[in-house]
Design a protein around this nucleic acid. Sequence first.
RNA 1: GUGGCCGUAGCUCAGUCCGGUUAGAGCACCUGGUUGUGGUCCAGGAAGUCGCGGGUUCAAAUCCCGUCGGUCACCCCA
Length: 442
Amino acid sequence: MSDSRIIEPRTLKGFRDFLPGAMRARDWLLETARSVLKSYGYAPIDTPALEYSEILLGKGGDESDKQLYRFEDNGGRDVALRFDLTVPLARFAAQHINELGTPFKRYHIGPVWRAENTQRGRYREFMQCDFDFIGTESLTADTETALVIHDTFAALDVGEFTIRLNNRKVLAGLLSELGLGDQTATVLRSVDKLPKIGRERVVEELVAAAGASSDQAQSLIEAVTVTGNNDAVLAQIVEIGGDATAYGVAALRAVLDGLAAAGVPESRVQVDVSIARGLDYYTGTVYETFLDELPAIGSVCSGGRYDDLASLYTKQRLPGVGASIGIDRLLAALEELGKVDLSDAGAPILLTMFAPDRTPEYLGVANALRREGLAVELYPEPKKLGAQLKYADRKGHTLAIIIGDQEWEAGTAQIKVMATGESETVAHSDLAGECARLLGNT
RNA sequence: GUGGCCGUAGCUCAGUCCGGUUAGAGCACCUGGUUGUGGUCCAGGAAGUCGCGGGUUCAAAUCCCGUCGGUCACCCCA
């Protein structure tokens, strides 16, 4: 093939390659989330990337239909790539809930696809980590959902973060009290923009789009922007919204009490009545999570309670509560905050190769160390020692082991600590123990 | 989907407005100085279809159109 026929290597808009550094960061993030979820008893599941289009269509409104990657497969079936993990869960639950039993809590980590325009931290293929607790209306599940969010972000060491809590019923109560009940969706969409465009423009939008009077709009904004600690906020809501908000307020209070009892610092949880969420299907508690150091990137974990997940696919009623960690958005945030080490960090030990005809023996030494639980990389060819050490340096190996003819004859090995440049010589029988000791110390 | 800005070596960028000798720099990379010891230093080297395609011109990285990719805003959302 001539040079002119080389195909330009490229990836689709919004689709990305993951180099080792980014992949390690993602693995670490997912491992952390997984271990928290397991500690709460969430079970792992997976579903196909591709579903019949009818399963996915019309579930998130017109917008998500437009964002579907949809096509006809080779068998003439109308299929589409999943755009979230919630709709597949609904289908999954309708199909299998009888064998699983309720209540059922599962987590699901996998890629989803949306054919929308890209932006920083927003891609067309991205990873979600969803966890849901279905088949129970108990507020304990709402509380545990918030606890999982809290424990995960605490374990991730992302600096301070705030879980913003609301309850759709509080909003609904306020709206009906103010006579805006029939405009719920429009109103919520405007209210959701509060932090972005400010109260003046939200008021304008409410008047223009939702047909609210200026007074109604002002009262609403006042109600959703009450400040103070959580108790004060709830008290003021009751004052403004009256009985209409009583249930929602009580639910929020129950969740807050549960979180406090579990030892969650109050500074990390904030009732925020302006959190409405884009999706319409939430009916109770709503969660959004922001990194205090990087609020602009948006919510890195969102979710809420829904009355009925799977009514489209089964007659069995399945209420539930769950949330979704935006893995890629979180990774973008962590990278921006300098909290992920993108450098290579593979096996801590590099075994250099020196004497050309001893390859089998090098392989033997490497494997003996691995059997002792040590991660070892064997340099694949007897290149100049300097080059091998340079490689060890660049790849971040902690120790380099050097065994040349002299060492083979003496039955010893030289261990070099890369950070200090110091080295020591030990017998082969002591090699694993000494490496372990040195790694423990560094 | 709509609009603004951007796209030059692996990376960060200069050069583009006012077209004109072999398109530059820093970092990274490779080789040697050091035939068994990395990070520093010195010397040398390799590396660019100027995103891609078309047009204008004697001449295009530079001007025009289209397209792909990135980014920001709207929208929506993780």
